Amino acid sequence: MTDITTPSRRIGSHVFLMVLLVAFLAPVVWALLSALKPANDIIRAPLTFDPSTVTLDNYIAMFRDVPIGQGFVNTGIVLVAKGAITMFFAPLAAFAFAKYRFVGKNVIFGAVLVTLMLPTIVLIIPLLLQMKEFGWVNTYQALILPGSVDAFAIFWMRQVISAVPDELLDAARVDGSGEFGIFWRVVVPVIRPGLAGLAVLTTMNIYNDFVWPVVVASSDRMATLQVMLSTLAQNITGNRIGADYATVTGELLAASSVALIPLLVLFILLQRHFINGILAGSVKG
């Protein structure tokens, strides 16, 4: 009985996963293909695609009407700086919580976890007032520093580092290694899958962040990619007199496709590391 039902269950699960795959990818494929269609065809026949009518006019017009390159530059700067801070300091804090005993450790870690329950909207006004006092509004400092070492990253890495055997750390201490040397030479090589998973999640979160950048970086010069995408329709109609609905839709799809490509490439290249990181982060501490 088991030999008969097991293959059928596997087939059923594969069919179910394929249905989910189609459901999730269909909007993405439609957007990518529609961006290559003439603007009027997107409105007139949105569910059809004729390869003979493929054109790059939507992309050319979008790059001409919208300074999306500046959005990529700002996002790249924030991503590199904020990601580096997260990837360095979050594992260090997690190492302390996972492998050291000190007074108030559980209370402090509990306070860190409590911040996960706070809605982002609750923190925006206090943070914005603080940035104003520092004179950091519309600066990279405001985009990078707040939230650069978040509670989730610390929790994630604590779960991963907790699985590292204490015997490895004790052996390194016997060999005369310092505490930071233990972290860098012993712990980091062991937790690379967890670090890879955190890197992918951190990249996605920073790249897709919208609420905080739109509040603290209101100028066009400091706008990140997501902020620029949110105001894309206004920029297109403002830079082109008489731009109709079809023109705006075509350029919006082109811009969305350009913004989507980096994340798709990142996930495809790091898929194996991301899955291993998810499994490493699921270890109980």
Rank of each mutant, 00 (worst) to 15 (best):
D170R: 07
D170F: 13
S162Y: 00
D150K: 02
P146V: 13
R185E: 04
G181M: 10
V164M: 14
D209T: 04
V214G: 00
E167M: 11
W136F: 14
N138G: 02
L129T: 06
F180G: 07
R192I: 14
W136H: 12
R158Q: 04
A171P: 10
L198T: 06
G181T: 13
V149C: 12
G176Y: 01
Y207I: 03
Q141L: 14
K132Y: 02
V214K: 09
V200Y: 10
L201C: 02
G197A: 09
Q130T: 14
P126D: 09
W156E: 04
V215L: 12
P213H: 03
T139W: 11
D170N: 13
F180L: 15
D220E: 08
L201Q: 11
E167Y: 05
V211I: 15
V211N: 11
L123R: 14
G178T: 13
D166E: 08
Q141S: 12
V215P: 03
L169D: 06
A196E: 03
L123P: 03
I124F: 08
V200D: 07
P193M: 01
P193S: 01
I206Y: 00
M157K: 10
Q130K: 10
Q141G: 15
G194S: 00
E179Q: 14
V186R: 11
S148W: 10
L198A: 10
E179Y: 08
R185D: 09
L201F: 03
P193Y: 02
I144C: 15
D150S: 12
L168E: 00
L168I: 05
V215G: 06
S177P: 00
